[in-house]
Design a protein around this nucleic acid. Structure first.
Length: 400
DNA sequence: TAATTCTCAC
């Protein structure tokens, strides 16, 4: 991107505001949020002013790529936009609503929904879809259904995304009958289910112990001409793995490749986890070794999964070796890496080592997450200590 | 010529 931009200048082709907005979008999608914000200065230096697209792009960048406190920064950009006398539009609010929902802050999302109407902007299909999805994902199904009705009352017709969001909500609550009813309603509304619709249901049936139903849905996909994609196979492979059928899962990987679908990192992560869960982490490590041969790149999840496998087998040495292997590949330990190792050491009663890892994690500026607290709290309870106020980390070794 | 919504893996 930078090369093309320089080339443009070299050939004396004047960039315009659109050029800069595209640039910002690229930086945001690459997670380079600070660089993206710096482009605002370039825009001004070239004699332009950031417009609504500039701000919407930056807000969405923070919503999707930001770390802790990202919605605070997204909101700050929104305020900056107002200060610069740029009026927000429906896309601004849709972006914020989705961002708040993904941040599990449904309250703020609902406030944004109210605020947009107060400003005279009518919620559109995407607005409703974002909020219905947010409510569904946060267990507020009744509110999601109410909003669906409101949406219909306002003259908007639910589309396949709306259906997928609510179906997913029912699936997460294991209300498969209701999910199925919605699925059957799709045809009646002259809508067409897509791969996401099927994948949602397949995954839910599998997780609810109805593997047969999951595979049957896969077959009806082929029948209806909606082609199963890598995610479909990942759901089914995960299903087999959960039922300890790792060999059958590996066969399914071969089948998907015969259909011309390439396994991705998730596929391998599922299979690696599958071998780990049947206490065969060395087979899992063999799979890790196969990944480069088929052009699939391991990620943090890959290594963390394998480490967890070795830890659960009590093979801490092997787990630490995986960490070294990961770091050789240029991947730094993340919170999950530490959680996995801390849990592994706790399980072996090696509290001093667990504590050393905990401190190392804090020193590196990594923020403990809920799982970290759960591990520590569980360990304390087991040792007969009563955990104090939530949110406070203890030295594990002080218990020994 | 640029910006927004739905599924799966630690």
């Amino acid at each position: 991107m930078e090369y093309v931009f320089k080339e443009m200048i070299k050939r004396r082709i004047q960039p315009n505001l659109t050029t800069f907005n595209i640039f910002i979008n690229g930086l945001c999608k690459a997670g380079k949020l600070n660089k993206a914000e710096d482009v605002i200065e370039d825009i001004k230096a070239w004699g332009f002013s950031p417009n609504i697209v500039t701000y919407n792009t930056l807000i969405d960048g923070h919503c999707k790529k930001g770390s802790a406190g990202k919605m605070y920064r997204a909101d700050a950009i929104y305020k900056e936009m107002l200060a610069n006398k740029i009026c927000p539009n429906e896309i601004t609010f849709n972006t914020l609503i989705d961002g708040f929902c993904k941040d599990e802050n449904v309250l703020a999302a609902k406030k944004a929904f109210e605020e947009m109407q107060r400003q005279g902007i009518k919620p559109n299909l995407v607005t409703y879809n974002s909020l219905i999805n947010g409510l569904s994902n946060n267990g507020k199904l009744d509110e999601a259904i109410d909003l669906w009705d409101k949406m219909v009352d306002s003259g908007l017709k639910p589309n396949i995304v709306t259906y997928n969001a609510l179906i997913n909500g029912f699936c997460k609550k294991k209300m498969m009958k209701e999910a199925r009813k919605l699925f059957d309603d799709i045809d009646k509304q002259d809508l067409v289910p897509n791969a996401i619709t099927f994948n949602t249901l397949i995954d839910a049936y599998c997780k609810d112990g109805m593997m047969e139903e999951g595979f049957a849905l896969r077959n009806s996909m082929l029948y209806e001409g909606i082609f199963p994609n890598v995610s479909t196979y990942n759901c089914l492979i995960a299903c087999l793995c959960r039922n300890q059928k790792v060999r059958a899962a590996k066969e399914l990987l071969v089948e998907m490749e015969n259909y011309g679908l390439k396994a991705n990192t998730v596929t391998y992560n599922i299979l690696i986890d599958g071998w780990c869960k049947v206490n065969d982490s060395s087979k899992a490590e063999k799979l890790l070794g196969e990944m480069p041969n088929v052009g699939v790149k391991p990620n943090h999840v890959t290594y963390n999964t394998l480490m967890d496998g070795y830890c659960m087998e009590g093979n801490l040495k092997a787990a630490l070796k995986v960490r070294t292997r990961m770091e050789k590949e240029g991947k730094r330990a993340n919170v999950v890496t530490y959680n996995v190792l801390i849990k592994g050491f706790c399980k072996q009663g090696k509290l001093e080592d667990a504590n050393r890892l905990l401190n190392e994690m804090l020193e590196k500026g990594l923020n403990p997450n809920r799982t970290t607290y759960d591990i520590v709290r569980l360990e304390m309870l087991e040792k007969g200590f009563i955990p104090d106020i939530e949110g406070h980390l203890y030295n594990i070794s002080s218990m020994s």
